[in-house]
Design a protein around this nucleic acid. Structure first.
Lengths: 208, 208
DNA sequence: ATTATTTTTGACCATTTGGTCAACACGATT
DNA sequence: AATCGTGTTGACCAAATGGTCAAAAATAAT
């Protein structure tokens, strides 16, 4: 019988296992988000994790498994703000809160945002299953919620799908295109201005 | 004296030179935009161009030169819609026209959009000079124009910088995140819906 | 202390990849 | 047809890279 210390962990991961696995994942997040999947090397990840390359391969069966693990973990975090959007809440405030939460994520988790962006840009080769299985149903459900708000005249008439796209695009932009923004708004916290701008614009956009 | 048939072309490029160089650049655009810089290989580019690898290296001094050439050419096309925005025109219509043009570019030139997005995502290692030299001054100039429109109450009070970011984000999103959109809006032309949605939302956003 | 188990690593390997080069083919000019 | 500059390529190369493995350290269990 093989070790199988990977995805379907046999029993209980030792203290040292937990520590090293999370070290590796954190280092891999650094490297993958900065260079993309193919641009990242195991040596870089090993270096960043403070472990030897063979040791990395002791904890993960290969480069791809590290990447897939990161993507899977990310999915949960990524969808959470949308899950939080409450059909019973006050419509405008629910949507604005969603915008705020997404912008917070772009600010606080830029590596995750870029990892995601990289994967989608390349055609989502390793993530399409997750998108289909997790994102799609949630998306459809929340679109329906927003549509009821539109039908009840609680917010302006708008296509819920493209509204969500606009929210994703405008918030993630500040993480994914940071290198460009840094050139255009030097030595300034773009997020402060972004928060106010998005608050105001989405408010106007949605006013019934 | 060396050949120097690269950037600073000695004299006149022959018919065959022009043909093959553009073939290579077109193939490289395919490959780079699909896999990123490091993910792209000269063999893939050569294959896509219908030429041998050594032949590719006969026309370009290396992988990086091909990439840089693409980026340089792209810059002009990319900035053009913003250049077109006329300070003398009707403010709201000028901005909406800019949105429309940017969306057209996302639809018609998705490879270029992804090439650009890939480069910025990786921190713009090969493009920062262009951003500084070309994009930055244009950005500042057009921000000033928009600011005068705001000051004259021609459009709503808004931060021109973040307005432009929002336009970039929402339009390019449809090209860059196509893989995700295809999952969420299956077998549908997202651009048709996007055009109407963006038209309406930016109109509301900017109404004085 | 001794055995058993889990971690760690130096030394290797096979493949991929960017790039070189000498030789060869082509096309225009004489 | 011989010549000369332009194009083209098969054969190679060195470095990078994902991955393997047997042996050595640590660590835990007895």
């Amino acid at each position: 019988m093989k070790a199988e210390r990977t995805t379907t962990a046999g029993k209980k991961p030792s203290r040292i296992q937990q520590r090293n696995r999370s070290r590796i994942l954190d280092a891999a997040l650094d490297v993958f988000s900065a260079h993309g999947y193919r641009g990242a090397t195991l040596d870089q990840i090993a270096m960043a994790a403070g472990l030897s390359k063979p040791n990395i391969l002791y904890y993960f069966n290969g480069k791809e498994e590290i990447h897939v693990t990161l993507l899977s973990q990310l999915m949960e975090t990524w969808l959470d703000p949308l899950v939080e959007m409450d059909a019973e809440g006050e419509p405008l405030e629910e949507i604005l809160n969603y915008v705020r939460r997404k912008l917070d994520m772009a600010k606080d988790l830029p590596r995750e945002s870029r990892l995601f962006a990289n994967e989608i840009l390349q055609g989502a080769p390793r993530m399409r299953p997750h998108l289909q299985a997790d994102l799609k149903p949630l998306f459809d459900q929340k679109c329906a919620v927003i549509q009821t708000w539109v039908d009840q005249r609680k917010i302006a008439s708008i296509d819920p799908r493209h509204l969500i796209f606009s929210i994703w695009a405008t918030t993630q932009h500040y993480a994914d295109f940071d290198a460009q923004i840094a050139v255009l708004i030097p030595s300034d916290d773009a997020f402060a201005g972004a928060r106010q701008h998005l608050e105001e614009t989405f408010r106007k956009m949605l006013a019934p």
